[in-house]
Every structure is written in C-alpha cells, then in structure tokens.
Design a protein around this nucleic acid. Structure first.
Lengths: 229, 229
DNA sequence: TCCACATTTCGATGATAATGGAAACGTCGA
DNA sequence: TCGACGTTTCCATTATCATCGAAATGTGGA
C-alpha cells in the first residue's frame, strides 16, 4: 500500500458504484471472500478483484488468505466511520444507520460466516469443543478426536458424508468481531446446518444475523456446557 | 437541483481534482466569481462552468448573480463540514486545518472580496457611512450624497475617475461571514485601494486576509468614528 | 446602439477507467 | 498427479467524462 492518500483518491474510491457496493457490503466489519463481494456488487470476479486491488493499494482494505479464498475486510475502523459519515450526508438518509447499529449487536452475537456459524456463540462453542477434547488444534487445522467422532455422530452429523465433500473437513476461521477462531470447514458447515435444522438457530431475513431460540439455549447448555444469551 | 444525492454522487463530486480544487477554494465560505474558481483550479472558464453546474445540480453550491458575474458559494454549512471531514481523513494531515481555523478568524475580521474590503471591518465601515449620511441605501444601490462627495474627495479619492470606470459605481455586496452588506463597486474598490495605499490595511501573502495596522485603527477611529481590533 | 466582458452552451476530442473474456496461479480433494 | 475451483493477471473493448475551441447569452458602460 502506497498510502498516497488525498481527498480525491479517497473520494474516487467511493465514487464508483461497484466499489461503493463492495464497501457497503464490507461495512459490517467482517471478512468477505472476493467472490461474495463480486456477487454483491453485481460484477464479475475479475472486476471485483481489480477494484479490491485498488482499494488495498491505498490501504482501505486488507486481505487474508484462507485456502483458495481471499478474505477482504476494511482495514481501519476510521475508514469505516468515514464511509458511515458519508452515508449520513447522502440523501434523505433512511434509518439505515440506526438499524445497522442494532444489527451490529446481533451480528456480533451470532451470524453466518459463509456457510458456518460465527460470532460470540460460535467462538464459545468452539472453545468448549477444544476444552472437552473433541477437537485438537494443529495450526489452522482442527483435528477431530475419537471422543469428537462420537460427539458429532451423536449430534446427528453424517461424518463420512462430510468427509467426502470436496473441501477442508475441519479447520479454523478467524472471527472478525471476536478476534478469535471458530470452527469452519465441512464440519463447521455440517454442525451449523444441523443446528439450524433442529431450530436451535434461526437465520434472519436479508441479513447474516442469526438468532438463538429457547431450545437452542437449552440444548447448547446441555451439550456444550455453556450459557448463551 | 435534483438533489439526487447518494454516496457515489457526492464522492464523485470531490473525486475530480479540478472540482476538489474549486471546493477547497470555496471552503472559506465566501462567494467566488466563476472566473476566479477557474483560475484557482487551473482550468478554463468553460470547464469550470461545467463543473459548477454539476455541483449546483445536486445542491452543493448556489449561484448569486451580481451584474455580469456569477458568485458561487457552498450552499450548506454541512457540506463544507463534510469536505473538512474528508480532508481530515486524507493523508498524514498537514497542519492545514489548524492554520485554516486561524486563517478563518482573520478572514472574518477583514479580507479582500475580489477588489474591495469585506468582513467585519468592511461591514462596520459601511454602516458608519450610512449613519453619517454619506451614503444612502436604495435597493442594492448605495447612492453617494453631497456630504459623501466631500467625505470621499477629502479622503483622497478621485471620484470623477472612478465614475468613468466601466462598472457599477457604488453598490451593496453581501458579506458572507457577517450576513450584512458592505460597500462594493468602483467606490468600494477605490476606497479599499486608497486605504491599502495609506498602509491602513496590509494584504497577507497567499491569502485574501487583510490586517489592520496601527495607523489604520487610528485613522478609522478618526474618520469613521468606530473602533476596530 | 455598440462594444467589452463574464459566463454559459454546444460540439468535438482525447484520456481515463470500468468491464469481462481468456488464461494463469495456487489451493484443495481424490 | 490430476481435476475442480476461487482468485488474479493480462488484454482488448467500450463508455464515460473532463477538457477546450467556438459561438451564444446577458449585463454594463459609453
């Protein structure tokens, strides 16, 4: 990043509709894979990559490589604030901002991260699994132990099926809001899918936020030994 | 003005270097003729006119016609603030901002408005001339009275020469910082020129600010019956 | 009425930059 | 080692837009 920042260069970053869409999508403070951002802006991956490189060049976003994905996020909180401020100056200003701060609380608590659970709930559940010896950390891998096999099978997960998937089976994913790791990979996806199927969590409309149900609180307390709000 | 404001349109306004230069020049809160802004941005009058029309379209600037000139100013204080904020986000932030707030004080006090004096000093002197009966307000005109003829001639102004100039002789000019009128036209220009020549005021380098000298304070107190700081 | 001048409108040009197809790269799973 | 896939790089195309010359508009002064 050359950090050759001046008013014009910053403004030109936001002036392009595609980049604005990307930045608005990144405004939740989380990491997003390049493909997601392309889809959100309605452009091809190539174009999104071009824009993201431009943003990274002046330090607006940073990249984090995880496997074949590259997760982008807004580098500094101050930049997010600047965009928020610009938003407040634009138009008749719908109540987006209020709703967002409210939304942010929910997102920090529990949300979908691509296809698996993230947020405080996910981080604490992962910690619980490590503490119980069901998982073992090995770099960015999260090896499943013998007791883990039993635990997840007991939970209703079809482990052989999950292993067959063309993707990492069990690994760490950096949680942006918690600054901790949570469970990802096919196992994370399968676990999340199962909990959604059991109605322990419910996805919100038009949002990545996830809400815990009463059954969820009870079930998690029983199975994971932790109390979530 | 369609006021079709969204983040992108606002940002694109600032993203162009020429427009940025114009806006930065307008940031002093005063009115500027289109030609001045063109010169400040280093572009031709046509191009500046094009940009200004664009800015007026979304209500960023407003126009005020005064004779053949069109004076532009930033429409809302909130827009000026927004630009200031953007400035604060840009680069390593030179001490420009501090210097500017310091500069702003000076500008409010006394400054050049094209070719005549403006600011608190100019407004109060104009008020004094009206009170003394040397000038009479008539719409946007400021008629010079018989006593005024004597006063200005006594002051060293060549009134016949000023009347010959191809421009309005004596008229009002809206003072942006004071929200009052001050003396403009050939008379205002002549008066200002004379006071500069007598070293009552001194122009600052690279700025429209004007500083009152000790002789100026004394002279103005004697001639105009007002005390300026 | 005519000229001077500030500004705008019109029209053409040229440069910039967003876009997506094709291909390369790197990672993952088999 | 191979194929699948997310992502980036390269490249050509296209559209947008800033720019300025020329001309029109409108105002002021003589």
């Amino acid at each position: 990043m050359s950090l050759n920042r001046n008013v014009s260069s910053i403004a030109s970053l936001i002036s392009d509709p595609s980049r604005a869409a990307i930045l608005l999508h990144l405004l939740d403070g989380r990491c997003h894979p390049a493909g997601d951002l392309a889809a959100a802006a309605g452009i091809t991956p190539q174009t999104a990559s071009f824009h993201l490189a431009k943003m990274a060049e002046i330090g607006m976003v940073t990249v984090e490589k995880h496997g074949r994905h590259r997760y982008y996020r807004i580098a500094q909180a101050s930049d997010a604030e600047m965009i928020e401020q610009l938003l407040s100056f634009a138009g008749p200003a719908p109540v987006v901002s209020l709703r967002q701060s409210d939304q942010m609380k929910k997102l920090r608590h529990a949300r979908m991260c691509y296809d698996h659970l993230a947020g405080e709930a996910a981080v604490r559940m992962t910690e619980s699994l490590l503490r119980a010896g069901h998982l073992q950390k090995d770099g960015l891998q999260l090896h499943i132990t013998a007791s883990g096999e039993t635990f997840f099978a007991d939970f209703g997960l079809d482990l052989p099926q999950l292993r067959k998937k063309r993707r990492a089976f069990s690994r760490c994913c950096l949680d942006w809001t918690e600054r901790e790791h949570h469970l990802a990979g096919a196992l994370g996806q399968g676990l999340t899918e199962r909990m959604l199927a059991m109605d322990w969590f419910r996805r919100e409309e038009q949002s990545r936020a996830v809400r815990i149900t009463q059954e969820g609180k009870q079930g998690i307390a029983e199975r994971f030994g932790i109390r979530l709000e």
